[in-house]
């Protein structure tokens, strides 16, 4: 059983897939560098990420299977889970034989497993469209720190570029140390380390106070239901919520 080891990026995964499907390598398992543990009887082969090769693979998936399959694969890979690479591999392999109809094979185990991962990312993405909180900094930039389960700030950025086109903003994945920066024209992805206390705009605290008061007042006392609240808004996201910070 062969194992290909990629760098953990989506381009890395696509390069590895290319090697299997079009480059003549054989592998049953695709695994990210950070998750690789050499086995007794098997050794992994490292794949060097190559942008052009990755692009060719992406195009092959788009044309020979479907744009939707590409999206599912991308979402699943964003989870960063150990099994994600292999699941994407099996899914795409099936896709090359089933073509456009791939995603209608809901009961195929490879398709179902990938859909489950993709759904997880879709759910978190939708949640964070709402739960992202910007703070206005002294320099006029809106700054939103996050710690999402999946690597999804590249999926959040286009939404906020459309929504807040006249602002300068930063969406910071604090745990992964990267950020999407937007300058009123376009957004770019960059590395960004954990920040200390950032200087806030002088009205920021007042605005936060207004929001906290609104949040407290809008709840109906007679209907208090902390379990329902936490079920809809998991506590893991409270850390950066202005209205829940420090609770």
């Amino acid at each position: 059983m062969g194992t290909l080891i990629y760098d953990g990026s989506f381009d890395g995964l696509m390069t590895a897939l290319y090697r299997v499907f079009l480059g003549g390598d054989t592998a049953e398992e695709l695994i990210a560098e950070k998750d690789y543990q050499p086995g007794l009887f098997s050794t992994g082969q490292r794949v060097e990420t190559h942008e052009g090769t990755a692009t060719a693979m992406v195009e092959a998936i788009r044309k020979k299977i479907s744009p939707r399959a590409l999206r599912h694969a991308f979402y699943a890979a964003s989870t960063g889970r150990k099994e994600a690479g292999t699941l994407v591999y099996r899914y795409i392999k099936k896709g090359f034989s089933l073509g456009k109809a791939l995603d209608s094979h809901l009961l195929d185990p490879d398709v179902a497993a990938l859909h489950a991962l993709s759904r997880r990312v879709g759910r978190e993405l939708h949640r964070l469209l709402g739960l992202t909180r910007f703070r206005l900094l002294e320099n006029g930039v809106l700054y939103a720190p996050l710690e999402p389960d999946s690597d999804i700030i590249v999926l959040l950025a286009p939404h906020f570029a459309l929504r807040l086109p006249r602002e300068n903003w930063i969406i910071h994945d604090v745990r992964r140390g990267k950020a999407a920066l937007y300058n009123r024209r376009q957004w770019v992805l960059t590395d960004l380390e954990r920040q200390g206390r950032l200087p806030l705009d002088r009205e920021e605290e007042e605005l936060q106070e207004l929001w906290k008061n609104y949040f407290a007042r809008i709840a109906i006392e007679e209907r208090k239901n902390p379990r329902l609240q936490a079920g809809n808004m998991p506590k893991k996201y409270w850390k950066y919520l202005v209205e829940k910070e420090g609770r």
Partner: peptide, 15 residues
């Protein structure tokens, strides 16, 4: 689809 932004202490969505 609409977006919920928070949930108040009674568990109702704030959009």
């Amino acid at each position: 689809c609409g977006v919920c932004h928070s949930w108040s202490d009674d568990g109702r969505c704030i959009s």
